[in-house]
Amino acid sequence: MISVLFVCLGNICRSPMAEAVMRSKISQRGLSDKISVDSAGTGDWHIGKTPHEGTRKLLDDFRISYEGMRARQVESRDFSHFDYIVAMDDSNASNLRKVPGGEEAEIVKLMDLLPNEKLREVPDPYFTGNFEEVYRLIDTGCDVLLDRIVKEKL
């Protein structure tokens, strides 16, 4: 089973959106038995909370399930468990490398998968309020990542 972990700051906006979008795409391609997805935050202040209302509303609009999703913090064991660790921005990539085990992990930024985009980081809608822009970037990034996984690992 190939596993993917999406990481943002609090695990209530960007990374759960990416988790839900990627799960939906995996299911649509009939790959749910081959690829698993999770999300986590580098910070601990939202542990146990459901995704942000802006993320939930947007996912509802696209009929993408986020059922059962609760915020959690990245743990050392994540680095040995996940095949792909995808950070939403430079700060989270840097924070991941400070977690024991993270200094050696291969971490990719979602925007590195989208070289034609002007933005180099997925903006945090917790601060910007622009969940639609984040969804667009995540939706496209998940397509690219899923194609990469299928080509490299399946």
Rank of each mutant, 00 (worst) to 15 (best):
L145S: 04
I85R: 00
E75S: 14
L119P: 10
Y135W: 02
E104P: 01
E106T: 14
E104K: 15
T128H: 08
K118S: 15
G102Q: 07
F82H: 12
M17W: 03
F127S: 14
R97L: 04
I149S: 05
E104H: 15
P51Q: 13
P100S: 02
D143A: 07
Y135P: 00
V86S: 10
H46Y: 00
S80E: 13
A93V: 00
D78P: 01
T55Y: 11
V7R: 04
M1S: 15
G30Q: 09
D89C: 12
E117S: 12
T55K: 04
L96C: 05
L114K: 09
V122T: 10
Q73A: 13
L59N: 03
L146H: 05
V99L: 12
K153C: 14
V86M: 11
S76P: 07
L137Q: 12
D147M: 00
S3V: 05
D78C: 03
L58N: 03
E67M: 08
E106C: 09
Y66Q: 10
A40D: 03
M17R: 03
K151E: 15
V134L: 12
R29W: 07
S39P: 03
V37C: 11
M17D: 02
T55N: 06
M17Q: 01
G10F: 03
I47G: 06
V122S: 10
R77K: 15
T55I: 05
F6M: 11
D60L: 10
K151M: 05
Y135G: 00
D90R: 14
R29V: 02
R77A: 15
A71R: 04
M17F: 02
R136H: 12
T50F: 03
Y66E: 04
L31N: 12
R70I: 04
I64N: 02
S27C: 06
L146V: 00
F6N: 10
I138M: 04
G54W: 07
A87C: 06
K49H: 15
R120Q: 15
E152F: 02
D83C: 04
W45N: 09
A93F: 05
V144T: 09
R56P: 00
V86F: 06
I85P: 08
L96W: 07
V122H: 11
K151P: 04
M88H: 09
M69Y: 10
S91D: 14
G68Y: 02
L145K: 01
F62S: 06
V74H: 01
D60Q: 13
N11H: 09
